[in-house]
């Protein structure tokens, strides 16, 4: 288990036992064309679990992943999924959306 990640157990109002990114809106880039923006519920070596998730595929609506993320960074995203579990093996990076700045 990597530092900053904890076992996927307690679900409580005050977020005991969750990873350091719990509650933070993150951008999850993948090895494929998909990129996800959602609120991190938890993560460990196996999966990243997101809530209130939007998904973009590279090139959809004429926007690259980067362009999509820059747009999302302005005001947020409209969720398409309540919850998604993304296998860690497909994840390239997990980054807080609040740290994204426009080019």
């Amino acid at each position: 288990m990597r530092r900053g990640r904890r076992v996927l157990t307690a679900v409580g109002t005050f977020h005991q036992g969750k990873s350091d990114l719990h509650g933070i809106t993150v951008v999850v880039d993948t090895t494929g064309p998909e990129i996800f923006v959602g609120r991190c519920d938890d993560e460990d070596d196996e999966v990243v679990i997101l809530l209130d998730v939007d998904v973009h595929r590279d090139g959809d609506d004429g926007r690259s992943k980067r362009e999509y993320v820059e747009r999302a960074a302005q005001f947020g995203v409209w969720k398409k999924h309540d919850r998604m579990v993304i296998p860690r093996a497909q994840v390239v990076s997990v980054k807080p959306l609040g740290e994204v700045t426009s080019a």
């Binding site: 809106t25 005001f75 947020g76 959306l97 609040g98």
Partner: peptide
């Protein structure tokens, strides 16, 4: 407008 993600971690 300040969305939630501009408040988190700050």
């Amino acid at each position: 407008f300040v969305p939630r993600h501009r408040i988190e971690n700050r």
